[in-house]
C-alpha cells in the first residue's frame, strides 16, 4: 500500500514536471526574436502576406489564449502542423523517431557491453597503484572527447579511406531493417564512446561503494571465490546507479544527438529540431521538446519503480525525504 502511494506520488510529480516544461518551452519559443513571418517569407514579402501568415498561425492572439489553445489541443493528442511541410507535427516526428531510436539503442548497447565490464574490473583493481592511474586516464579520455570532434574525424576517415561504410544515403530501419542498422553503426559508435566511458565510471563508483559494505568483508572472510562475490553481491547491489545512468543516457541519446545527426546527415529528431529552430517552426520546437521530456520523465519513473523492486528501501527513502 505504501509502495502504491509512493508510486502514485511519483507519477503526479512527473505530470507536474511535464506541465512546467510545457509552459517553459511555449514561452521560450515565443520570446525567440524574429517573427516567423520574417524568417519564412523573407524580405521581399508584402505586408499582406505577412498578415495572412500571422493570422493563419494564430500568432496575433494573446499569449495566454495561444497557450490555452495549444495545451488544449496537445491534451487531445494534436500538436499542430509544421508550417513548412504542412503535415501534422506528430506524424513528422513519428517518421523520424525510428531513425533516432535505432542509433540511440545501438549506442546504448555498445556502451553497456563495454562500460559495465570495464568499470567492474577498474573497481576491483582500484587499490593497485599503476593500473588505477592508467584506467582513470583512459575512461577520463572517453568522457572528454567532444562528440563533434570525434564525429568529424570519423566522417573524414570513412569518406577518404575505403573502409566499407559510406556516410551518405542513410537508410531508415523502417525501409530496410539491416541496411538501416548498418548505416546507424558509425553515428552510434561515435555516441557510444562517451556513454561507455560514463558507464564505466558509474559502474566503478557503484562497485567501489558496494565493496566497502561489511557483507563483502564477511563474504571474503567466509572464503567465497571472488567471481562468486562479484556475481552474487557486487553487481546485484550496484545495479541501481547503473540502471539510473542507463535511463539518463537513453534520454540523452534520444533527445541530444543533434550534432552527430547533422554530421552524419541522419534524418532523425535532432537534425529536424535544428531546422525547426532556424525557421521558427513553433509547433515542431514545442512538440520536439515535449517528446524528449516525456521520454525522460517516463524513463525516470520506470527506473524508480524498478529500483524499488530491486531494493524495497528505495520507496521508503523516497517517502521519508
Amino acid at each position: 500500500m505504501q509502495a502504491l502511494l509512493w508510486a502514485g506520488r511519483r507519477v503526479l510529480t512527473g505530470l507536474v514536471t511535464l506541465f512546467g516544461i510545457a509552459v517553459l518551452v511555449f514561452m521560450a519559443a515565443r520570446i525567440v526574436p524574429g517573427q516567423t513571418a520574417d524568417v519564412l517569407l523573407g524580405p521581399l514579402a508584402t505586408p499582406e502576406q505577412r498578415e495572412t501568415l500571422t493570422e493563419e498561425m494564430g500568432l496575433n492572439e494573446g499569449l495566454l489564449t495561444q497557450f490555452s489553445i495549444w495545451i488544449g489541443n496537445v491534451l487531445q493528442g494534436d500538436f499542430g502542423d509544421s508550417i513548412v511541410s504542412r503535415q501534422p507535427v506528430l506524424e513528422e516526428l513519428a517518421l523520424r523517431l525510428p531513425v533516432t531510436a535505432t542509433i540511440a539503442l545501438l549506442a546504448l548497447l555498445m556502451a553497456l557491453l563495454v562500460g559495465i565490464p570495464v568499470g567492474t574490473v577498474q573497481a576491483l583493481r582500484a587499490s593497485r597503484k599503476g593500473g588505477a592511474v592508467a584506467s582513470r586516464i583512459v575512461s577520463g579520455l572517453g568522457i572528454s572527447v567532444p562528440d563533434f570532434v570525434l564525429g568529424a574525424l570519423v566522417v573524414l576517415a570513412f569518406s577518404t579511406l575505403p573502409l566499407g561504410i559510406t556516410i551518405g544515403n542513410f537508410t531508415s530501419v523502417t525501409d530496410t531493417f539491416w541496411r538501416g542498422v548498418a548505416s546507424s553503426l558509425l553515428p552510434a559508435a561515435v555516441l557510444a564512446v562517451f556513454c561507455a566511458a560514463a558507464t564505466a565510471r558509474t559502474t566503478r563508483d557503484a562497485v567501489l561503494g558496494v565493496l566497502v559494505e561489511p557483507y563483502i568483508q564477511a563474504a571474503v572472510a567466509r572464503g567465497e571465490r571472488p567471481a562468486t562475490i562479484v556475481r552474487r553481491h557486487v553487481l546485484r547491489n550496484s545495479s541501481i546507479p547503473i540502471l539510473t545512468l542507463t535511463a539518463t543516457l537513453l534520454a540523452y541519446l534520444l533527445g541530444g544527438a543533434v550534432i552527430i545527426e547533422g554530421l552524419f546527415n541522419v534524418p532523425g529528431i535532432g537534425s529536424y529540431f535544428i531546422l525547426a529552430m532556424d525557421r521558427r517552426d513553433y509547433a515542431v520546437i514545442q512538440a520536439g521538446v515535449m517528446l524528449a521530456a516525456v521520454v525522460f520523465v517516463l524513463m525516470s519513473l520506470l527506473v524508480e519503480l524498478s529500483s524499488s523492486l530491486i531494493d524495497p528501501r528505495v520507496s521508503t527513502i523516497g517517502k521519508a525525504s
Partner: peptide
C-alpha cells in the same frame, strides 16, 4: 563537410 564526404565516398 557531409556533402564533401558524400562526393568523396
Amino acid at each position: 563537410q557531409t556533402r564533401l564526404a558524400g562526393l568523396r565516398d
